[in-house]
Computed example of a mutant assay.
Amino acid sequence: MKKVILSAVILLGTMSIHANVLPVSEDSNTTVIVQSEYTEVAADAVPAAVKTALQTAYPGAKLEKAFVNEKKEYKLDISVGDQKATVYSDVNGNWLKI
C-alpha cells in the first residue's frame, strides 16, 4: 500500500511541474529607427527659402543653431521670445514632421 501511495505522489508531483510552464511568445517585433546624423552649419549657410519659411511660420523667431544632414534636411534650433523649439525643414523651406 505504501508503494501505491508513493507512486501516486510521484506521479502527481511530476504532473504539477509541467503544469507550471508558461507559454513563450514566438512573435516579437523589433523596430529600428535610423536617425540621420546632423552636422552643425553657420546660420549664413542656411538657404534663403528656409529662412523665409521660418520668418513666415514663426514671426520674430531667432535662429540659434542650424544643422544639416546628407539629405539636405535642416534641423533648426529657434527661440521666439522666451520659448525655445526645434523645427525641421527641407532645402526648399517645406516643414518636415519628425
Results as ranks from 00 to 15, higher is better:
residue 24 V to N: 11
residue 1 M to H: 13
residue 90 D to T: 03
residue 49 A to G: 05
residue 95 W to H: 03
residue 71 K to I: 07
residue 60 G to R: 00
residue 69 N to P: 07
residue 29 N to G: 05
residue 32 V to Q: 10
residue 98 I to H: 04
residue 54 L to M: 08
residue 39 T to M: 11
residue 31 T to L: 14
residue 54 L to W: 00
residue 12 L to D: 06
residue 65 K to F: 01
residue 94 N to V: 02
residue 98 I to W: 06
residue 83 Q to P: 03
residue 15 M to Y: 13
residue 64 E to F: 04
residue 95 W to G: 02
residue 21 V to N: 00
residue 16 S to G: 06
residue 68 V to M: 01
residue 52 T to E: 04
residue 90 D to K: 01
residue 36 S to T: 10
residue 20 N to L: 14
residue 96 L to F: 07
residue 28 S to N: 13
residue 93 G to Q: 01
residue 89 S to G: 02
residue 6 L to F: 09
residue 35 Q to Y: 13
residue 92 N to C: 04
residue 3 K to P: 06
residue 36 S to K: 15
residue 3 K to L: 15
residue 79 S to C: 08
residue 98 I to R: 09
residue 22 L to W: 05
residue 18 H to M: 15
residue 30 T to S: 02
residue 18 H to L: 15
residue 75 K to A: 00
residue 86 T to W: 11
residue 35 Q to A: 10
residue 26 E to I: 11
residue 40 E to V: 09
residue 82 D to V: 13
residue 55 Q to V: 07
residue 27 D to Q: 12
residue 60 G to N: 03
residue 37 E to F: 07
residue 47 P to Q: 01
residue 32 V to H: 06
residue 84 K to Q: 14
residue 51 K to H: 04
residue 79 S to H: 12
residue 44 D to E: 15
residue 66 A to Y: 00
residue 46 V to M: 03
residue 87 V to D: 00
residue 44 D to C: 10
residue 5 I to Y: 15
residue 58 Y to V: 03
residue 9 V to F: 09
residue 83 Q to H: 12
residue 28 S to Q: 08
residue 86 T to R: 14
residue 29 N to V: 06
residue 35 Q to N: 09
residue 64 E to Q: 11
residue 97 K to M: 07
residue 80 V to I: 14
residue 31 T to K: 10
residue 39 T to A: 12
residue 57 A to N: 09
residue 96 L to P: 02
residue 73 E to S: 08
residue 64 E to L: 07
residue 35 Q to R: 15
residue 77 D to T: 09
residue 2 K to A: 12
residue 62 K to A: 07
residue 78 I to L: 04
residue 49 A to L: 03
residue 9 V to G: 12
residue 85 A to T: 09
residue 22 L to N: 09
